[in-house]
Design a protein around this nucleic acid. Structure first.
Lengths: 130, 130
DNA sequence: CGGTATCCGAACGGATACTG
DNA sequence: CAGTATCCGTTCGGATACCG
C-alpha cells in the first residue's frame, strides 16, 4: 500500500474477487431466467418449468436448489397427494431482480448492435482460414 | 394468441430467449472481469492480465477475442518489435459497463447476506446424509 | 511481448428411467 | 406432481510448450 497505483490494483483485485462470486450466482445457464420467471410472484414447479422454454427437469431442480441455498428463492412444500411445491423470490431475491432488470433493458436496446458487430467480425475475419 | 395468458407466456419466452443471449456474453468466467478491467481506459495485454488475478493466458486471449467479436472491446495492434497491443472499450462496451455497475453495487451491499443464507442452509440441510 | 497449439481433467448440462 | 439417479457427450478452463 505504498503508492496509489498499488492501492488501486489491490482494490481492483479484491473487488473482482467478490464480484466474481455474484457472477457465479447468475452466470450459469438458468439462474437469471428462473429469477425472472418468479418476478410476478409465487409459482408452482411445473409453472416455472413451462415459463422457461427448454429447461430440463434436472437443471431446473438443480438451479432452484442453488437459488434457495443462496437465499434468493423460497421453497414451500404442501404435503399432499400429489404434492404441491411453490417457489417465490425472497426479499433478497427481489433486490437482485431490480438489478437484473437493467441487464434486460440493455439487451433490449443494444443486443442488435452486438449481432451486427458479430456479423461484421465474421465477414472480415471469417471463414478464410480452415 | 387466444387469451392474455398465452400472450403473456409467449412474450416471456421471447424475452427470455434474447435475455439468455446477453447472459452468454457475460456469464463465462472472465468476460465481466475484463470489461471491468478496461473501465478506466486503454490497457496493454499484459496490463489487463495483471489486473485480473488468476486468469490464464489462454482464457484471457479467448475472452478478449470474444468481446472484440461482440463489438464490446477494441483491439489495436502496433506492429513493432516487440509488438504492442492495446485494448479498450468501444462505445457499445461503455454502455454495458454502466449496467454492470449495478451488479457490482448489488454485490457490495447484499453479498454478505448470500453467504449468511448459504451457511444457514448448510447448517440445516447440511452434512447429515452422506 | 503477445500470442498459438495441444493435452487433459473437471464441470456443465441433456436424455432417460425410476419414485413417493 | 415433483422430484431423484445414472449415463454420457460437450464445453470450460488450466498447464505446458512453442512461435513471430
Amino acid at each position: 500500500m505504498a503508492n496509489t497505483v498499488q492501492a488501486k490494483q489491490a482494490d481492483i483485485s479484491i473487488t473482482a474477487c467478490s464480484y466474481r462470486r455474484v457472477l457465479e450466482i447468475i452466470s450459469n445457464k438458468w439462474s437469471a431466467l428462473v429469477i425472472y420467471a418468479l418476478e410476478d410472484g409465487s409459482l408452482r414447479y411445473g409453472e416455472v418449468r413451462r415459463r422457461i422454454e427448454g429447461v430440463s427437469q434436472k437443471m431446473l431442480t438443480q438451479t432452484l436448489r442453488q437459488l434457495e441455498r443462496d437465499g434468493l428463492v423460497r421453497r414451500e412444500v404442501t404435503p399432499s397427494v400429489p404434492p404441491v411445491v411453490d417457489y417465490s423470490l425472497t426479499p433478497l431475491g427481489e433486490t437482485l431482480i431490480n438489478t437484473l432488470r437493467h441487464l434486460k433493458l440493455w439487451t433490449a436496446e443494444y443486443y442488435p448492435l452486438v449481432e451486427k458487430a458479430r456479423a461484421e467480425y465474421d465477414r472480415v475475419n471469417g471463414d478464410d482460414g480452415i
